[in-house]
């Protein structure tokens, strides 16, 4: 097995040159797809995802119809998650509805059901979130959550707050933030915490720690991931502000002309 110093050098640098508390480069674009009501494209290092949002619209899927009959006073959030065949290191055949895909989809559904201001959305309607992972290099769910938040804002669907996610991993004794695939899978799967928070209103919407971990280490791990999520919030907010500002200035320029 590797020693921890192979992942973090004595100088405190990781294999990809980052410090332990440094996120990977985040690049985003909102509205890359013209057909969708809202869409976004996000790169977190080498992890790349594309999200399209439709709705609120009439209930069309069987699953949403079932939920609508159960609770007719609210809207339903439906998520479809899929990974491109070329997304991983090895090419993998696309299997519809495999366990990992389903669990990611339901995690996103639950997280965004409590983020979207569901009481302001017309009841008995459906919001569809389509997530396509173009490339995965660790932090897949993190990238998906952040991208979906942007796509929802692009679609103009009212949300209670930004939902921002980040992750952290424990490599032997050192907590690193935003691990890549290599770090996530070190030591046969190092303890990784994925946290999604509502930064302004406060509150953790999604928390996921896999692999056995001593309880004393949990707090630090979750705190680090939360710090990462808050950083991502400032970055996303800047993107949204800039985009809104440019939209407003072009609209007012058109009106003046």
């Amino acid at each position: 097995m590797f020693a921890s110093r192979e992942f973090v050098s004595p100088e405190g640098l990781r294999l990809d040159g980052r410090r332990v508390n440094e996120l990977r480069r985040l690049r985003v674009r909102s509205g890359p797809l013209t057909d969708a009501d809202g869409s976004s494209y996000l790169e977190l290092g080498n992890t790349r995802v594309l999200v399209a949002v439709y709705g609120p619209r009439e209930v069309s899927s069987a699953k949403a119809a079932r939920q609508t009959t159960q609770s007719s006073d609210r809207a339903t959030v439906c998520c479809q998650f899929s990974m491109a065949t070329f997304s991983g290191g090895e090419r993998r055949r696309k299997i519809k509805g495999d366990r990992r895909t389903m669990s990611h989809a339901s995690a996103l559904e639950k997280a965004f059901s409590s983020t979207i201001a569901i009481d302001k959305i017309p009841p008995r309607s459906q919001i569809d979130i389509f997530v396509e992972v173009l490339q995965s290099d660790g932090g897949m769910l993190v990238a998906c959550i952040n991208a979906t938040t942007l796509a929802l804002i692009d679609a103009g669907i009212e949300i209670r707050d930004y939902l921002c996610a980040s992750s952290s991993a424990l490599l032997n004794d050192i907590t690193v933030i935003d691990p890549n695939q290599n770090e996530e899978q070190s030591f046969g799967g190092s303890p990784t915490a994925t946290v999604a928070v509502l930064p302004v209103t406060g509150g953790v919407v999604y928390l996921d720690v896999d692999t056995r971990l001593h309880i004393d280490r949990l707090e630090e791990l979750v705190n680090q991931a939360t710090t990462g999520a808050l950083t991502i919030h400032t970055l996303l907010e800047k993107v949204v502000r800039d985009r809104t500002q440019s939209t407003v200035s072009t609209t007012s320029a058109q009106q003046n002309a």
């Binding site: 980052r18 410090r19 508390n21 440094e22 996120l23 990977r24 480069r25 985040l26 690049r27 985003v28 674009r29 890359p32 494209y41 710090t227 950083t231 970055l235 800047k238 993107v239 800039d242």
Partner: peptide, 13 residues
């Protein structure tokens, strides 16, 4: 393009 008005930032605290 995907990157036409993309935004790049790294964060280190």
């Amino acid at each position: 393009g995907f990157f036409a008005d993309s935004f790049a930032a790294t964060s280190g605290n």
